Amino acid sequence: PESESLDLELQLPVFLLSSPAAPELPILERRNWLIHQHYIRKDYETCKAIIKDQLQETNGMCEYAIYVQALILRLEGKIQQSLELFQSCAILNPSNADNLKQVARSLFLLGKHKAAIEFYQEAARLSEKDWEISHNLGVCYSFLKDFKNAEEQLNIALQLNKHDRTFMMLGKVHLLAGDTDKAIEVYKSALGKYQKAFEHLGNALTFDPNNYTAILAAGSMMQTHGDFDVAMNKYRVAACAVPESPPLWNNIGMCFFGKKKYVAAISCLKRAHYLSPFDWKVLYNLGLVHLTMQQYASAFHFLGAAINLNPRMGELYMLLAVALTNLDDVENAIRSYEQAVALDE
């Protein structure tokens, strides 16, 4: 396959000669800010070390430290251990819907769809009108082949947020239920949503022709439909406003890839990587282009780096397996294919 921050402007009094000591944070929360900083930077080893100290200091009673430790374990593929820690969070703070949603998510990843539904339903009682809960309930019901409840929950999710993932899932549910006509209607509705979005982008650009965000979004939609030259014209305008934008250079690189200009694509993607070295999508694209050019060692390097940043995406392991196969490392290629299949189930 989603952190929020609040910026507060603090101003000291002009004639303050001595400032009082900063208020002591409760012992349970003293290192939460530091844990958060290292987690969002993907510095997981340091994060785990701070969490260990925090839990020792609080006798294992710090909810946030346990929560982040569980997130890291899940990223490492240790789903059962992650589940147990999220359950601990739910015991420490049973009124927090996020804790219950994470328990449900872990149960879903373990294939325990009925149990996941129970926790999502409990979370829904605490957090009404939550798109994520309704969408995930629909996904769980679809795995149980309860297509009626799946359709109901996905329609509720669409009322809350017309997300493309929900449109796609609802269409899939109709296909699985054998109702092709309804599936086509859902897909047409999704296309209509994108058409309206494109019209809104056009209006935004009419009022502000140099709006970088709108230009990038419009170019991305054109690029998705294969209009690479038109998208490139949009990106040229954006490049004048924000020449150091990683998403911009990533998209330009993939435009060149679509036009089969692979050397230019690699040049643009490497610029994006220089500007944003921890963006797994850029690394993924670099791996893909190098695979296409049959430069398998370079593809292995970039795909391996992408997997370190996003270890839960099966497609990355599949591409890595292709690179390994061409490097005559059959044993590790098989392992990569197996991991890709396991993540795709």
Rank of each mutant, 00 (worst) to 15 (best):
P1A: 15
L16C: 10
S19A: 15
P20F: 08
P20Q: 10
A21S: 14
A22D: 14
P26E: 15
P26N: 15
E29M: 09
E29W: 00
R30T: 14
Y39S: 09
E45T: 15
E45H: 07
K52A: 13
L55S: 03
L55V: 03
L71R: 11
L75E: 12
L75W: 07
Q81I: 02
Q81P: 01
S82I: 08
E84K: 06
I91H: 05
L92P: 00
N99V: 01
A104F: 00
R105F: 13
R105C: 06
S106G: 04
S106N: 14
L107S: 00
L109D: 13
L109W: 12
G111Y: 01
H113V: 02
F119P: 00
R125Y: 10
S127G: 04
D130K: 06
E132L: 11
I133T: 07
H135W: 02
D146I: 07
D146Y: 10
E151S: 12
E152I: 14
L154A: 04
I156F: 13
N161D: 14
K162W: 01
D164H: 15
L170C: 06
L176E: 15
T180H: 12
Y194K: 11
Q195R: 15
K196R: 15
A197M: 13
D208A: 13
P209D: 00
P209I: 03
A214F: 02
A214H: 02
A217G: 02
A218V: 03
G226E: 09
D227K: 13
F228E: 02
D229P: 00
V230R: 09
Y235A: 10
R236S: 10
R236H: 09
A241I: 15
S245T: 08
N250D: 06
K261N: 11
I266N: 04
I266K: 05
R271E: 06
S276P: 02
V282N: 01
G287A: 07
V289I: 10
T292E: 15
A299Q: 05
A305Y: 01
A305V: 00
I307K: 03
L309W: 06
E315T: 12
T325I: 08
D329A: 08
A333N: 05
A333R: 01
E338C: 10
Q339V: 05
V341K: 11
V341D: 08
D344T: 12
